[in-house]
Design a protein around this nucleic acid. Structure first.
Lengths: 184, 184
DNA sequence: GTGCACATGTAATGTGTTACATGATTAT
DNA sequence: ATAATCATGTAACACATTACATGTGCAC
């Protein structure tokens, strides 16, 4: 039961949306908002091979008789889809909001078409609870840092973190309301 | 000219503030806002040894004749201090705001007592410029995602990212004003 | 015909993670 | 006495990064 890496998860999610080649995926990582993933061939091709070995994706050789550019287009298998859905549906823990915020957002982003809307709403509910608790905890620490006689960059940096989390909280509340209202 | 890891940088910064043992550092990582660093012994002790080998820190044996608990208290050397200051003073690039935001905040947090206030102000100026540019770019992508007939979690997740960055921008502007006003 | 984008891959290296291991001191 | 905390360490493993390597098709 080895936990797959974030990169592998991202690859599964992208391949669920659209069957494509390693090169296509690299371009996505290089040019879109998923930039924080490396687009280096040394990370992506080995990761694709691992997914292939686990039978979560398959490579179909492209338009015949031969594609001179030997492109390999990958698509999700049923097992891959299951893995993806399982990962997306994981509960939101305090550990996640502390250490894995980007991955949580990725999970939310991949929910479309993979899980019912109720799951997305539950995700946001849990997210608000855990993140809210964490922000309170941080606030407590912040107050103990004492009335700053002069301005310390350390305290300011800490504040920046809190405000970032608060923005995410706000976003979650708004998004949950949107999803709840929205018909269908 | 090998680039040191974020962990090594964090260790240098903490040791500059206070000479302490590996165990103390682990506790800091485990309990404070620097939680996103692992507190596992398998990461910290080897990292401390690397820093020791490069002569950036030294271990002094504690209160003699013998500390039965064989605590090793580390402190920065002059060379270590130089390394720390150099890393803190690095220019803020677009790459940094995209891929290394947490590390940027760490650099800002460690500025106190290590670099003049003007450096902190310049940091924020550059930070605002680069982050502002990146946010504009993201907004452009967002508009091209098209008027969402229905609400997609993907689009919402994207929005969350933008709003997070905007919160950081706001913070930078406010903090820069504070630093500029503040006397001394 | 030269350079660039397409397309995939391997090898070396460093480092973070997890799990394991050891032993002393303090609290109950 | 015995559990928890203090304190440091190693070994196995997986993974990301960087650099290198190869070759095609197309545009100018």
């Amino acid at each position: 039961m080895k936990r797959q890496s974030s990169l592998e998860f991202a690859l599964l999610g992208l391949l669920q949306q659209q069957a494509q080649s390693g090169y296509d995926l690299r371009k996505t990582f290089a040019t879109t908002a998923m930039r924080h993933f490396s687009d280096s061939p040394g990370s992506i091709y080995p990761a694709l091979r691992r997914l292939e070995e686990r039978r979560w994706i398959t490579a179909e050789s492209p338009a015949l008789p031969v594609d001179p550019r030997r492109r390999r287009v990958f698509r999700l298998t049923a097992a891959g889809r299951e893995t993806l859905v399982a990962r997306i549906s994981l509960p939101v823990t305090r550990q996640d909001v502390i250490w894995q915020l980007p991955e949580l957002m990725l999970r939310f982003a991949f929910m479309d078409g993979n899980v019912p809307r109720a799951t997305a709403i539950r995700f946001l509910t849990d997210f608000e609870r855990e993140l809210g608790g964490y922000v309170e905890e941080l606030r407590g620490q912040w107050e103990q840092m004492g009335s700053l006689v002069s301005i310390h960059t350390g305290v300011l940096a800490f504040q920046s973190g809190i405000e970032g989390f608060e923005a995410q909280l706000e976003w979650a509340r708004r998004s949950r309301a949107l999803l709840a209202e929205e018909p269908r």
